[in-house]
Lab assay of single mutants.
Amino acid sequence: EETGVRVELAEEDDGEKIAIKLWLRIEDIKKLKGKYKDNEAIEFSFDLERDVPEDVAQEMVESGYVCEGDHKTMAKAIKDRVSLIKRK
């Protein structure tokens, strides 16, 4: 499903790190509610043992990086990427 958002690794995952750096990349602004630039990327750290995707997305909303209306879309994108990383 195309959401307009993609999360990718910002650094090589060696399988050892607990906290990883990720990029939340805006790919299609028409599919989102907030005002973003095409190909805008937000770099953030995610602790694989402690962080919760919904909470991280909420922090982005509170910091003004993400529109409240896009919270669920961002949280799902983060959750999907993190579950792929954890499965390795």
Score class of each variant (00 low, 15 high):
residue 50 R to W: 02
residue 29 I to D: 15
residue 64 G to F: 02
residue 47 D to A: 00
residue 19 A to F: 09
residue 67 C to G: 09
residue 21 K to D: 03
residue 43 E to Q: 11
residue 66 V to D: 01
residue 21 K to M: 02
residue 71 H to Q: 12
residue 62 E to N: 14
residue 46 F to W: 01
residue 52 V to G: 03
residue 21 K to Q: 06
residue 51 D to K: 05
residue 45 S to W: 15
residue 8 E to M: 06
residue 43 E to M: 10
residue 44 F to R: 02
residue 85 I to H: 05
residue 56 V to T: 02
residue 52 V to I: 13
residue 69 G to S: 14
residue 38 D to F: 07
residue 52 V to T: 15
residue 21 K to V: 03
residue 38 D to Q: 13
residue 60 M to Q: 00
residue 30 K to V: 03
residue 80 D to F: 05
residue 13 D to C: 08
residue 8 E to I: 09
residue 42 I to R: 03
residue 1 E to D: 10
residue 59 E to A: 12
residue 36 Y to T: 05
residue 31 K to P: 08
residue 40 E to Q: 15
residue 9 L to A: 05
residue 47 D to H: 05
residue 31 K to Q: 07
residue 2 E to D: 13
residue 4 G to W: 01
residue 12 E to F: 07
residue 25 R to S: 07
residue 51 D to L: 03
residue 20 I to L: 13
residue 40 E to V: 11
residue 37 K to L: 05
residue 44 F to G: 01
residue 27 E to H: 14
residue 80 D to N: 09
residue 65 Y to M: 14
residue 37 K to Q: 11
residue 10 A to V: 10
residue 30 K to S: 14
residue 9 L to V: 07
residue 55 D to R: 12
residue 62 E to G: 04
residue 65 Y to V: 15
residue 49 E to M: 09
residue 69 G to F: 09
residue 28 D to R: 01
residue 41 A to K: 15
residue 18 I to K: 15
residue 20 I to E: 02
residue 8 E to A: 03
residue 13 D to E: 12
residue 39 N to G: 14
residue 40 E to C: 11
residue 77 A to K: 06
residue 17 K to H: 09
residue 13 D to R: 06
residue 45 S to N: 14
residue 57 A to T: 05
residue 14 D to F: 05
residue 6 R to H: 11
residue 23 W to F: 14
residue 53 P to R: 01
residue 8 E to D: 13
residue 42 I to L: 09
residue 53 P to D: 01
residue 75 A to W: 01
residue 11 E to Y: 00
residue 32 L to T: 05
residue 12 E to G: 11
residue 65 Y to E: 07
residue 77 A to W: 06
residue 87 R to T: 06
residue 13 D to A: 09
residue 46 F to N: 02
residue 11 E to V: 01
residue 80 D to P: 03
residue 70 D to L: 07
residue 74 M to C: 12
residue 64 G to M: 07
residue 53 P to H: 01
residue 41 A to F: 13
residue 15 G to L: 05
residue 22 L to G: 13
residue 20 I to K: 07
residue 85 I to F: 10
residue 78 I to F: 01
residue 60 M to K: 00
residue 31 K to A: 07
residue 49 E to A: 12
residue 56 V to Q: 00
residue 9 L to W: 09
residue 34 G to C: 03
residue 52 V to D: 14
residue 38 D to I: 12
residue 82 V to M: 04
residue 31 K to E: 10
residue 7 V to E: 04
residue 48 L to G: 03
residue 32 L to Y: 06
residue 5 V to I: 13
residue 43 E to R: 07
residue 15 G to T: 07
residue 19 A to I: 15
residue 25 R to I: 15
residue 54 E to P: 00
residue 36 Y to N: 06
residue 44 F to C: 03
residue 54 E to M: 04
residue 14 D to Y: 08
residue 22 L to Q: 12
residue 26 I to K: 13
residue 24 L to K: 13
residue 9 L to R: 03
residue 9 L to Y: 03
residue 71 H to S: 13
residue 77 A to H: 09
residue 39 N to A: 09
residue 36 Y to D: 07
residue 34 G to Q: 05
residue 12 E to Y: 08
residue 77 A to E: 04
residue 45 S to C: 12
residue 66 V to K: 00
residue 37 K to P: 09
residue 29 I to V: 15
residue 67 C to A: 14
residue 57 A to K: 00
residue 81 R to Q: 11
residue 38 D to W: 08
residue 67 C to F: 12
residue 72 K to P: 12
residue 26 I to H: 12
residue 60 M to S: 02
residue 47 D to M: 00
residue 84 L to V: 11
residue 17 K to C: 08
residue 10 A to S: 08
residue 37 K to V: 08
residue 15 G to E: 09
residue 35 K to G: 06
residue 59 E to N: 12
residue 56 V to M: 05
